[in-house]
Amino acid sequence: MSALPALLDLLGDHTVRTVLLGASVVGFVAGALGSFAYLRRQSMMGDVVSHAALLGIAAAFIAASLVTGSGHHTLALLLGASLAGVLSILFATAVVKHSRITMDGAMAVSLALFFGGGLTLMRVIQTGPFAQRTGLNVYIFGRAAAITRADLQLIALFALVALAFMLLNWKVFKLYSFDSVLSELVGFRGRTVEPLLQATIVLAVVIGLKVVGLILMIAFVVAPASAARQWTRSLEGMVLLSGLFGASAAVVGTLISVVAGDVPTGPVIVLVLTAIVAVSLLAAPRRGLVARALRRRRQRLDLMRLAPQVPR
């Protein structure tokens, strides 16, 4: 059997199609919005958010169980995750504002507080009187194959909201990302814009948890943006390219993992993303490491030619 019919055969599979669609939407949205985190120079906030989401998921599970008898309402879980994610950012920024702790330390404290709380609540769920308490671990390590049609609809809904938000606030987000002082002067208050922008990024992060897991979600935020930055100098280009990098890594990674069989999808996607970053750093025109080395060599040779009397 040659490669093409085998591939088409795979695409005919319903589960594979669902996973591919879900993963690529997540990859696109996280990649696109990751560009803003990158420009805000706070990419690692994505890591804090994805970990903090566990607290929201666990809390939402408990609340939903108490109200409806079952905790497995994906929409409730995702809303809880988003809320906890936003709170973890607000906490870290408040710490920086009200103490001498710098952002990196504040992020680490926020991570410990929210993720520690999340793990504690997970334990409460495990030992408590909750029906259908299994299945929440999916959000920690991610299991792309477990994505259902209902998950897919929610992923699409959150993705659309996040993208619509980004497009509607495009000018504000752009100005704020590049020059927050000017943005303030023009009348966009940082106190309003910052949480809006962060909340949009949070939406993109929480839908990825089931696909790659909360530990590896940071790769979807950082890697596509870092790669895209090497090829373009405009925000429009960066956001689009970053989204495309994220989506294509998700597709390629999922296919590799399906073909290889017993290999977890999330880590494979991350390795594909890393490869894209490596190629971009090396091969990008002008900025790339190869172009840079060649330019240096040429300049050195030119210099030699101009000044032959200089001893080598």
Partner: peptide, 27 residues
């Protein structure tokens, strides 16, 4: 290298290494 700005360099390498670890464990 100055090619990657902000704290992004920090988030580029460890997910890859962790992924390799998870794949090794899964096998």
């Amino acid at each position: 290298t100055g090619l990657v700005e902000g704290d992004a360099p920090l988030g580029l390498l460890f997910p890859a290494l962790f992924s390799i670890g998870i794949i090794l464990v899964s096998q």
